[in-house]
Every structure is written in structure tokens, then in C-alpha cells.
Design a protein around this nucleic acid. Sequence first.
DNA 1: GAGTGGTCTAGACCACGGC
DNA 2: CCGTGGTCTAGACCACTCT
Lengths: 248, 248
Amino acid sequence: MNIEPVRKNSLTDSVRHQIVDYIKNNEKNGIRKLPSENDLSKALGISRVTLRRALGQLESEGMIMRKHGQGTFVNEEALKVKVNLSEMIDFSDIIRRAGQKPSHEINLLCEKSADADMAQLLDVEQGEPLVEVEYALYAGKVQAIIARGYFPKRILGDIPSDEVWNAHSCFEILAQYGRTLVECDRVKLQAVSRQEMEEYLGHETKIMNQTVLQLSSVGFDQNVVPVIYGEAFFDTNIIQFDLYRIKK
Amino acid sequence: MNIEPVRKNSLTDSVRHQIVDYIKNNEKNGIRKLPSENDLSKALGISRVTLRRALGQLESEGMIMRKHGQGTFVNEEALKVKVNLSEMIDFSDIIRRAGQKPSHEINLLCEKSADADMAQLLDVEQGEPLVEVEYALYAGKVQAIIARGYFPKRILGDIPSDEVWNAHSCFEILAQYGRTLVECDRVKLQAVSRQEMEEYLGHETKIMNQTVLQLSSVGFDQNVVPVIYGEAFFDTNIIQFDLYRIKK
DNA sequence: GAGTGGTCTAGACCACGGC
DNA sequence: CCGTGGTCTAGACCACTCT
């Protein structure tokens, strides 16, 4: 039983992927200039409008740069961004991006009723049954992330077995057992001491650093209805988040 | 002598601003649905393509949500983001967004030659003269940010007087005296202890928190040539960065 | 002047949601 | 069924850069 996120491939999307492939294939050759928009649109058999939509998306991500009167170029500085904070990715992928091998274990899995704060964050009635789950994530053999999540129990039809929890992330379980995709989230950042983290969690951890980066996030489904609240603590000696920003 | 960032207003830009105004004006009335694309484009006297380009930009920022077959809606969750980390804004504006009154003082202003690390980061020769400047920024009466910046001295024709430094940010001085606009930057995040921060800075600070968020950034001009390197330390009890992220 | 990206349009057709 | 947003096109004209 696998429910995959269904994303139709528009022409623009597939063009964008072709351009990304083109860039990756020519990375070694040192080719930093793309063909002109006219040439590219003819070569791809599409209108210039569609090509420009694809290029515009890549430009807003920072992957390419366009210079009026000169051409379109690969932006090598933006490509140096590894652990991109502005992308919504799994904890495991974050560790992979940091160049490490990810693994995880479940610290905690239980039911809890929503207190006032949680009820407001998740837009549910106070007392509504929530699932509380805590993961410890390792980069190689070192603990890099502690993540705790809360979401309404009713989203899950049946509570999966421990094996399932051990093999999948919260988001995968919400997708497969709750048919709920987290499409966007709002994140708050704080720097906290290891001691503050352990007081919040209520137990000791194997995080080595004395200071950690705390990300508090509310995840929403496609209708911007809150579905999950998470608190994650990162050892920034191991996970260094990056961002590439463009002035508007 | 004021050199303003020259940004031509395209039709799409002005349409986008009109939509933002529309949203702000109707925020109080509780109107969360925008007119249909056909109606809007007719009312504004523009083609639907141009309107959709403007709406698409607002959607990628999270300000609006479009539902196929239903309409376009204001995204209230995204609007809750206050101190948006994915926007390139001045330290003073960051403090304003956090709901505080900003002020700043210069801690340090001197010349320094580039060491190996700095030479690599700024893509200059080792030994090249740099300007080193350190600001302390206050939220009300509390120290909230310490920021240190380095940039090649040759960018500035003449070194401005102390008065100018006290009245402007690094970016304003680079723009007005160096005719250099910082158009994009790459940022790295770390959580560090107050002690580590003070060791890096070489002096004590008035930051109250025991842990701070460190942002290390390289700023680039419109040709993605590095022009400034900065290390900034934030008291996240006062400045809590936010992000709204959309899955791709 | 030739080539590049930047902007805008009119119009067609499709897919989804609610009535 | 109708109205909504989603996608794509051909073509025009402009502004910038280089030679």
C-alpha cells in the first residue's frame, strides 16, 4: 500500500528538469553558458514563453542567472548551497545533504491529549487525542537531530505497527496511513542550550554540542489546514543549514 | 548624493503591488477570496498572462493560494511570518519586523589585509586591503545583534566620515559610496554559545542570551561577484526568524 | 547591426469544483 | 452546466551588450 504524491508533469516542469540535466551534464566540461532562448526553445520544440517560465523558476531558485544582452549562465555560487533550509525535505535527506549516512530510532511513541497551546497550533479542540512521537537521527554514528512531532490521532485510520514507525518518517506515515500530504510549513528558528533542549524533552540526549538550533514548525496540507506540529533540535556542528537569497 | 537602487517598474510588478494593496485593504473586512482571473485582468486592463505572472510570484512567496475550480485566496498562515529569513533585509528592518525600535552604534572600524580564508571568500588576492566594521544593534535598549563585515577597500572611493558610518548600514554605504548593490547572498546558520561568539569577536558583548544564532554570509553584486563577507550574531530571544516553505 | 534576454498580448484549450 | 484556475502557443516589440 503506497500512496505516492501525484504530481502531474506539466511541459514546463519537464523542460525545467531537462535544463537541470543539461547543467549537470555540462558541469564537468566547464560550460557555464546556456544556449540562447531562441535556440533552446527551437531545440526543445516548445514556445519561448514556456521555456522562459521554466528558466524563471530556475532563476528564482538561484540555479541560473540571466544577463540582458549577454545570455543565461549557471550560478555556481547558489549551487554551493548544500543543506538548503528553504527546501522542505526529510530529516534523513538533510543528513544526506550534509554528506553523512542517516539512520534513526524511535525514542517515544504515545498518545496525548491536546493542551491549550497545541490545540491552537493544530486548530483542534482542547483535549483532542494526539499522537506524540520522537525520533533521534544519526549522522553516521553521531546523534545529529532530535525531532518530536504531534498530530491528531484521527488523521491515522489505524495506528501502524512499531516496525512501520521504525522504517518511516512522520511525513511518510501521514501520507501512507493518513492520506495527508504536508504541502507547506511555517518554521521558527531559535538558538538554545543543550540544557534547555533536555529540559523541554524531559530526558538526556547524546547530542554532543552545548548549543543547538531549534526549529519549531507547523505543517499544513494542501488546504493550509494544520496537520502536524514539530520541534526539532539540530547539532549545527554536523548540520549546517544554508540559504541562497535574491533581492526582490 | 544618493544613489537609489534603480528598479524599473514592469507592468507585472505594479500589478503585483496593486494586488498586495488590495489584500491589505480587505484584510480587516475579512475578505479572503480574490476576484477571478478574468474579472481581475479586465478590471486592471491587462492580459490574463500578465495577471497570472503577478499572481504566480505572490503564490511562490506564500501570500496567496490558488484552488483549481474554486478561486484565489489569501494565505493567512504565510502572512503570520514576521521576521522572514528568506528575505534579504537590513538588520534595522529585522528589528522593526520583530516589533522593536532599532538603533545601532559602531564598535569597530579599521583596515585589515585579507588572510587566506577571507581572500578565498571574497575572491581577492591575499593581503588585499579590506575594511573591517562592526555594528552593535539594539532593539529598544537591549542589544539584539552584533554584526561584523569585511569588504575590499577599493570598492569605496573615499572612506566616509564616522558620521556617515554611524548613520548608515554597510549596504547603504556600499551602494552610495561604492556604487555597489548587494543583489544576492549565501548564508550559513549555526547555533553557538555566547562564549564562542565573544572569543571570535575578541571582546565582551551586552547580549543577554547564553546562546546565539550565527549567520555567516557572502554578499554578491549583480554579476555574482562577492563584495562583502559578514558574521552576525542574533539573540533569538529577541529576534525569532521565520520561514514559510512550499513543497515543490 | 546582430544577437541576447525582457515584456506584453490575444486566444485557444484543458481540468477541476460546485450547482 | 458554468465558472474557476492551469497550460501552452505565436508573435510583436523593447532594451541591453558586444563588435
